[in-house]
Simulated scan of single mutants.
Amino acid sequence: MIRVTFWQGKDGNLRGFTVTGHAGYRIKGEDIVCAAVSALAQTTVLSLQEHLRYLEKENKEPVVTLREGDLQCLVPDGLSPAGAGTAGVILRTLEIGLQAIATDYAQHVRVEYKKYKTADCGKLTQGS
């Protein structure tokens, strides 16, 4: 099963996401569920990198961790209003797409929401 966690700040806005696992819908190379989730998540990372690079005066790219079957992307603290707004729209678009996939393939994709705190954006710790 693919598990998607959306990380929310204290204000409830999306600050990032984690995707783990494999859908198990079909064999590797034929799994349309895995391909759909991967395409949305990777496009989100690329879009955040591109837009934040353009909007932010300082280097404020998302913090991305990628391993086999796992992807985590966190938006850094201290974005400009334009950067924060753009990041929010991009993350909300991912949320809509993944919720639709989770609805159609509920046995293969689960979406959840958690609060987080960061000492620095690279170290994620769950909040209350």
Rank of each mutant, 00 (worst) to 15 (best):
I27K: 13
V4Y: 03
P62N: 06
Q8E: 15
V45E: 02
A100C: 00
S128P: 14
A102Q: 05
L55C: 04
Q49Y: 04
H51P: 00
A87G: 03
I2L: 10
L74R: 08
R92I: 00
D11T: 13
T44C: 10
Y105M: 02
Q72V: 09
D31N: 11
G122Q: 15
A39N: 07
L91E: 01
R26A: 15
K57F: 11
Q72L: 12
K117F: 13
V45H: 05
T93A: 13
I101L: 10
H51Q: 10
I90R: 09
I2P: 02
L52C: 05
P62M: 05
V33F: 08
G78L: 08
E61V: 06
A82D: 09
R26F: 08
E112T: 15
G9T: 11
T86K: 10
Q107H: 14
I90H: 08
R3L: 06
V75C: 06
K114G: 02
K10C: 09
W7Y: 15
V111W: 09
G127V: 13
E95M: 03
T93M: 06
R26I: 00
G78N: 15
N59D: 15
P81N: 12
L94T: 02
N13P: 00
E50Y: 10
I96F: 12
Y113E: 01
L48Y: 08
L46T: 09
K28M: 02
E68F: 05
V37K: 12
G69M: 09
A39W: 12
R67W: 07
A102N: 04
V19P: 00
P62W: 12
D11G: 07
G85W: 08
T86V: 13
Q99G: 00
R110W: 02
F17Q: 03
Q99M: 08
D104L: 08
T43K: 01
A39Q: 12
E58W: 10
G85R: 12
D120V: 14
Q126S: 11
V63E: 12
G88E: 11
C34I: 07
G12S: 14
A87I: 03
V64H: 06
I2G: 02
G16A: 07
G97A: 02
